[in-house]
Nucleic acid binder design. Structure first.
Length: 380
DNA sequence: GACAGTGCTGCTTGACACCT
DNA sequence: AGGTGTCAAGCAGCACTGTC
């Protein structure tokens, strides 16, 4: 199976190029399509055998487009190669994801267009990585391939962020691993200065890494200032999909709850928690002078703890079924971000406010406002 | 003369590299 | 880190040309 990632810098201009790439690829990840929202259907004109999913980054509600168009990501796939393809919900304009299944083997494919390497964009960059992690966490798919223009050149800050993220997730940068960081590989050539940079990458989970067979840059494609990155993968080596009903899924989806859900949660908690009997052993032994430090008392405490956690988990899962927002937008301005737990959300909100405050004060390089912004960013 | 189509110019904007 | 330069696409405005 062949994956190709390509920053086409205007799909309209590069239509013929992408069409020729579709003859040798099974999945194509495009960045900087520069398509307006109503032009997404242009993706369907590339190859009639390919399905597509795209997003525009241009906000047409602000009136007539001024200046150069920008952003936009898309995924195209060969319909004949997959049994099923499902779209993954994501609210970030820089990320799209699909789950592709061939026989019983499934992979999650993400296409990303990360912000340019600048300190002002660090928050946005980390936010994108967090959203990718959230998508993966909630997808229940082991084999993950993230393709795109990550704007992360080896040795520069965002590359370090990217490798740190990979390390945290137990992922690998497939192209760097395959080609070697000192190989002189480049995927971008500046038209103004002729400088070369390695901005496009392919991140893979540990499970997907086992299936990667090769990586190369298609240097003979001259339709953009970027070159396509081609990744070969043997999907036959991907572990079979396990759909066991007993699989330990994280059924709790964190996010806002309406009053009905809160009441359902309260009721469930009350009913289940009152069925837990407080262990008699602990009633008679609840001081710090307990001399029974054997495994027996510890096991009792563990059981009590697990019982309580199970009750809360079940109540959270049950009450969420009353939700109207199953990973989709509930309404204007109201959204559920998958995997976005309340701790990260609060930290993000705080960091965002401190950042905007710092910008409002003219981006000072020292002082209280600056220190607050840095501290909140570290916390996030 | 009115209208439509075409081509050019200037402006705006985002992305990126280079220099200080 | 900040300023500056380069590049490219799309838009508006204008002038020019062709057709009726």
């Amino acid at each position: 199976m062949t994956f190709i990632s390509y920053n086409c810098k205007s799909l309209k201009r590069s239509m013929d190029c992408v069409r020729s790439l579709s003859l040798q690829a099974d999945v194509i990840a495009l960045q900087e399509t520069w398509l307006l929202p109503h032009e997404i259907t242009e993706l369907g004109k590339i190859n009639k055998n390919f399905g597509y999913f795209g997003k525009s980054a241009i906000d047409t509600t602000k009136g007539v487009l001024r200046g150069r168009p920008y952003g936009g990501v898309a995924l195209l796939w060969d319909n004949s190669k997959f049994n099923s393809v499902s779209l993954i919900s994501c609210n970030n304009d820089r990320i799209i994801a699909i789950k592709i299944c061939s026989s019983d083997r499934c992979m999650l494919v993400c296409c990303v267009y990360m912000p340019v390497d600048s300190s002002d964009n660090l928050l946005d960059y980390v936010n994108c990585l967090s959203e990718i992690a959230a998508i993966v966490e909630n997808s229940n798919v082991e084999s993950v391939v993230v393709l795109g223009d990550l704007n992360s050149h080896p040795g520069e800050p965002f590359f370090n962020e990217m490798t740190s993220f990979c390390s945290d997730q137990g992922w690998l940068c497939a192209d760097v691993e395959m080609l070697g960081i000192d190989s002189g590989t480049y995927t971008y050539v500046s038209e103004a200065h002729g400088s070369r940079r390695w901005l496009d990458h392919c991140l893979v989970s540990e499970a997907a890494w086992k299936s990667i067979t090769s990586a190369k840059v298609l240097y003979d494609v001259y339709w953009s200032d970027h070159f396509p990155l081609e990744i070969q993968c043997d999907i036959a080596t991907v572990r079979l999909k396990l759909d066991s009903p007993c699989a330990p899924l994280n059924k709790v989806v964190w996010g806002d709850r309406d009053q009905i859900q809160i009441e359902a949660y309260n009721k469930s908690c009350n009913e289940m928690l009152k069925q837990i009997e407080f262990p008699q052993e602990l009633s008679q032994c609840c001081d710090n002078l307990c001399d029974n430090v054997s495994l027996e008392h510890r096991a009792i405490i563990d059981n009590l703890y697990n019982s309580i956690v199970n009750c809360l988990t079940k109540a959270a899962s049950y009450s969420h079924k009353h939700s109207n927002c199953q990973l989709k937008r509930k309404g204007k301005g109201e959204r559920c971000v998958i995997g976005w737990n309340k701790h990260v959300r609060e930290a993000h909100w705080d960091a965002r406010q401190k950042f905007l405050n710092w910008v409002w004060y003219g981006k000072p390089r020292q002082g209280h406002i600056y220190e607050l912004m840095i501290a909140s960013r570290k916390t996030f």
